[in-house]
Amino acid sequence: MAIKISARRQIAFTIIAWTIGILMFFPILWTAIAAFKTESDAYTLPQNFLTTPWTMENFAIVQARSNYLLYIRNTVVIAFVSTILGLLFAVPAAWSMAFAPVTQSTIKWSGWRWLATILGTAFVVGLFLYALGWDLTNRASIGFLALVIVIVPAALWVFSRNTSDSLLWMLSTKMMPPAGALIPIYLIFNRNGLVFKDWGWIDLSDYNIMDSFWGMVPLMMLLNLPIIIWMLFTYFKEIPVEILEAARMDGASLWAELTKILTPMAVPGIVSTCLLNLILAWNEAFWTLNLTNKYAAPLSFFISEYSSPEGQFWAKLSAASIMAIAPIMVVGWFSQRQLVRGLTFGAVK
């Protein structure tokens, strides 16, 4: 039995909901209106937007002055390439965890095993570097050795987990605060960072991926990879295994199973994942503000340039803002339902 709702109640809810909805949307609306006004009209208060003339000149001026097209190209390249790259990594991973889960961890870690792994790694790598003729007392060597001693046992540990532990561990990598990774990434990207300077055996004098797609695209991919994998995993998990088993009974190979049965069923999930990732990459502001300033700078950086003194030109600021947010807002409107799953790591569907 459905509850009958009186017309009066419905009218009341309509009024309240529309009021709040318009209030929430108001700053965007206000910006959109100001974008079509002349500079002096955008300042005048109280604003009589209805009577003042409308103009498109702001958009042209923004493009002419600060080359909007360059920034949107950068944003599109970073967002799209990182999404595609992320899918290349995530689709196989999510497929594997959803359909061929590992139930038991392959290595049982104990204190002694840890110690042996770490010391063994240090010994083998040290020997190898010594054979290569490295000076092992040099700080670069010590740093490199320390890195290997961390990474090898860590990788062994990660790769020996069972599937549910792997999933949780992937999630936990998303908790890494950007402030903690900022210095290392800065140094890795920067030619003058200590990380690569003293290596000697490869010529890295031309190496500099600061403010370039070579740096920003993989970075953006890594930032969002846990979310992509999780979201895809929850979608794949919903595909009934019985269908695959039936196909196997009929003699389908693994390849046929993947391409003919799984892929068509997975397309909606993959598309929603793409949309979420596009939104996240488009709006990313911490890394873009810190690591780009010209060649690979995306729209979030472009807008930050208006903080001063261009910020005094509000009509132009508004026009630039609208140009920066309009494309992704439309994408967001169409994918709001799918966003929930990705943004809660599948906890709310």
Partner: peptide, 29 residues
């Protein structure tokens, strides 16, 4: 299962690098 291991490996490797290399460098510096 065997294919699954290989399918998972690139993601695990990428995330291992992302999780541990910056942290190790940050501790060093």
């Amino acid at each position: 299962q065997k294919v699954g291991r290989w399918a998972l490996a690139p993601s695990l490797a990428a995330l291992t690098v992302w999780a541990f290399v910056p942290l190790a460098i940050a501790i060093y510096f």
